[in-house]
Amino acid sequence: MIKVEGLRKSFGRQPVLRDLDLEVATGSITVIIGRSGGGKSVFLKHLIGLLRPDAGRVLVDGVEITHLTGRALDGIRRRYGVVFQGGALFDSMSCADNVAFPLREKLRMPTDEIAKRVEAALGQVGLEGVGAKFPAEISGGMRKRVAIARALVTEPEIIFFDEPTTGLDPVLVNTIHHLILDLHRRFRFTALMVSHEIPEIFEIADTVAMLHEGRIVEVGPPAAIQASANRVVRQFIRGEPDNSEGH
């Protein structure tokens, strides 16, 4: 279980996270929704140890990671897979080398075993035969799928998805979501996803949490979020314009 308690973070005088609390159950798919600039990616970076909070704690299976450094933090990160917003594929490597990279460098597997695992991982995301291509030679949707394959190939316990479908057409959005759902059913990892995709995420999430102005303002199963009486949540999921922005 991932437990976040009273997380606070400011950049200069600008508070981004204000006493954020959240629990992510083991083996579940939790989706964080919220408006752009609301602190979702900053929150995710705290969970993967790329940012340190000003106050508060992040606990992974009871281990507080907020003050961990070096090997202790790497030990936690070895349990993670991360799919970054833009994929973050190494553009100097082929797709197969990208997927092979954590196996070769992190797990130090033998070459023949790596080849088998890479082929299987690319097959799982429907990308057989593209291993030799470079990230610049494939479409945005394919890049996201390679990034998912890279995150999945080490069989992590926890996978973080940072807006995995941003910038994709509706067909690809659904394809990626169903891919994640399918992989989750097979591998039972804990998934924490940041997304804007309303209403598609309600089909795949076990829990949805609404992040607004640095706090989780509502959390619950998709049906409860869709029926929420909270004005901010309703406005977001219905895509109503915000008159407070002076337009």
Partner: peptide
Amino acid sequence: IMRITEQIDALTVMAL
């Protein structure tokens, strides 16, 4: 470019 496209972050979260 590796920094702004999160490739360096990707290395870090792979514990590399």
